[in-house]
Amino acid sequence: MKVIFLKDVKGKGKKGEIKNVPDGYARNFLFKKGLAIEATPANLKELE
């Protein structure tokens, strides 16, 4: 799953980066803790 990092996550990504991460990791950790959001076309446009 492609995500946009909202905060730095040690060993995974830095704020503003767009990366592919495992689906479970994104849903169960990154999204729940507010560390990242899904890289949807709308979210990507908002980032620019």
Results as ranks from 00 to 15, higher is better:
V9G: 01
P22W: 08
L30E: 01
G24R: 11
K7M: 11
G13W: 12
V21E: 03
K32F: 08
F5D: 01
P22E: 11
N20R: 13
A39L: 08
K7F: 14
K32P: 15
A36R: 00
N43H: 08
K33D: 10
K12Q: 14
A42V: 10
V9N: 01
I18V: 13
K19N: 04
N28Q: 10
K10V: 12
A36I: 06
T40Y: 06
D8T: 12
A26D: 06
K2A: 11
K32M: 12
K32R: 12
G16S: 04
V3L: 03
N28M: 10
E46R: 14
E17A: 05
D23S: 14
D8G: 05
G13N: 03
D23P: 13
K10E: 12
K10N: 10
P22D: 11
E38G: 04
E38T: 05
K45R: 12
G34A: 07
G13E: 02
G24E: 14
F5K: 00
F29D: 11
K19V: 14
T40L: 06
F29E: 13
A39Y: 14
L6H: 01
G13L: 02
L47T: 08
G24I: 13
E17K: 02
A36E: 00
E17Y: 02
G11M: 05
E38P: 14
F29G: 05
N28H: 11
E38Q: 10
G24N: 12
V3I: 08
A42R: 12
G24H: 14
L6N: 01
K14Y: 12
N43K: 09
K7Q: 13
L35M: 08
R27I: 14
L35F: 11
G13R: 01
D8P: 05
A42K: 12
V3W: 01
D23E: 15
D8R: 06
E46Q: 15
E48N: 12
F31W: 02
G16W: 10
E46A: 15
P22K: 07
A42Q: 14
F31R: 01
I18Y: 04
D23I: 15
K12I: 15
N20P: 07
V9D: 01
G34I: 03
E38N: 03
F5S: 00
E38A: 11
V21K: 00
N20T: 15
G24W: 15
R27P: 04
M1Y: 06
M1T: 13
D23Y: 15
P22Q: 09
N20K: 14
V9Q: 01
K19R: 12
I18N: 02
A39H: 06
K45L: 12
N28G: 10
V21N: 00
L44Q: 08
E17D: 11
K15G: 03
G34P: 00
N20M: 15
L47A: 09
K15P: 05
K19M: 10
G16E: 02
P22V: 06
N20Y: 15
M1Q: 04
K19D: 04
G13S: 04
E17T: 07
A26H: 04
R27Y: 13
P22A: 09
L30S: 00
K32T: 11
V3T: 01
A42M: 11
L47W: 15
K15N: 03
E46N: 13
K7E: 11
G16L: 05
Y25A: 04
L30M: 03
P41Q: 13
F31A: 02
A39Q: 02
A26W: 09
F29K: 07
L44N: 06
D8K: 05
G11S: 06
G11K: 05
L6G: 01
N20H: 14
K10S: 10
N20L: 15
V9A: 02
N43Y: 09
K45S: 12
F5T: 00
K19P: 00
L44I: 13
N20V: 15
L6R: 03
D8N: 10
K15F: 06
N20Q: 13
K32V: 14
A39F: 14
N28Y: 13
F5P: 00
M1H: 05
P41G: 08
K7T: 11
I4E: 02
F5M: 04
N28E: 14
N20E: 15
P41I: 12
P41H: 11
F29L: 08
K14T: 09
N20W: 15
K32G: 07
E46T: 14
L6M: 07
L44T: 07
E48M: 14
G11P: 03
D23A: 15
L30K: 00
A39P: 03
L35K: 03
K15I: 09
K10Q: 12
N28T: 07
K12L: 15
F31N: 02
K32E: 11
L47V: 11
A39W: 12
A36G: 03
F29I: 13
I18P: 01
K7A: 14
L35A: 04
I18L: 06
G13F: 13
F29H: 13
T40I: 08
G16D: 05
